[in-house]
């Protein structure tokens, strides 16, 4: 197992009170080496909290998170995060942004440049290396962010609704490209989304979350006989979609 969540809980203090708010409770989940796992759930179900814990930016209140069998202790370059809002440094060119993670890793300057170029090329932005983020479209910015996370060669790619802010067409082409990159690099990917279609399209497995407090409800295996052609028109796609939709819908009905 690459990543193991063992009975993980996270509570946040409520302002001006002694109470705490449980964001996650009893989360147990295994992610396999080289797997593409999508996490889908309603807003407020603690998806992003889960990712923050995995990235080491916050610590769980209970339980433990293991990567390669060792507990997570703070952030590190074995995990790369891609944020919905790109998080590019606006004063750096596309190329310099990709180099940023490599600087953090301590890669020498010339090698840095070479690596950054290689990864910009991988996301199809070879000709845009000198552009600043504000000179790029949303889709291009996200490509740069993905290149940045790939460049320092983490084992795990954590993606927090990376395509949510993009238009439908750009989103689909980036989804396709992400799968291509995943196949080429063999990274373990944990991809958070609130889109059911996106979860089914990308994930080998889909973890469905429920809210209040956030837990893992089910983990679904997704497989198709063939991914050729319009996958979204495959009847199996519709079945998966419906199954997840039903799970999320049950969730939305108040329990009383």
């Amino acid at each position: 197992m690459k990543i193991q969540f063992r009975d993980v809980g996270k509570e946040f203090p409520v302002r001006d009170s002694d109470h705490t708010f449980p964001a996650l409770s009893g989360v147990t989940l295994d992610v396999r080496e080289g797997e593409f796992l999508t996490l889908v759930g309603p807003s407020g179900c603690g998806k992003s909290t889960l990712l923050d814990l995995l990235s080491g930016l916050t610590e769980p209140t209970s339980g433990e998170i293991l990567i390669d069998g060792a507990p997570v202790e703070g952030p590190g370059l074995d995990r790369g995060i891609v944020f919905q809002q790109y998080a590019l440094l606006p004063w750096r060119t596309a190329l310099a942004n990709v180099e940023f993670g490599l600087e953090a890793k301590g890669v020498p300057r010339t090698e840095r440049r070479e690596l950054a170029r290689h990864y910009l090329d991988l996301v199809g932005l070879r000709d845009f290396e000198a552009r600043y983020p504000h000179e790029l479209s949303g889709g291009m910015r996200q490509r740069v962010a993905i290149a940045r996370s790939l460049a320092f060669d983490p084992d795990i790619l954590l993606m927090d609704e990376p395509f949510a802010a993009l238009d439908a067409q750009t989103r689909e082409s980036l989804q396709e490209e992400l799968l291509r990159i995943w196949e080429a690099t063999g990274k373990t990917v944990v991809f958070i989304t609130h889109g059911i279609d996106e979860a089914v399209y990308l994930g080998q497995r889909v973890a469905v979350m429920s809210a209040g407090p956030g837990r893992i409800r089910t983990v679904l295996d997704v497989s198709f006989d063939s991914r050729e052609g319009d996958l979204r028109a495959d009847p199996r796609f519709g079945e998966y979609r419906h199954e997840i939709w039903t799970l999320l819908r049950e969730e939305a009905i108040p329990v009383g």
Binding site: G56, L57, P75, R79, A87, L89, G101, F152
Partner: peptide
């Protein structure tokens, strides 16, 4: 931008 700080911190 706190996101820039978060992103940089996540890279250690």
């Amino acid at each position: 931008d706190p996101l820039l700080v978060k992103s940089a911190r996540s890279m250690g």
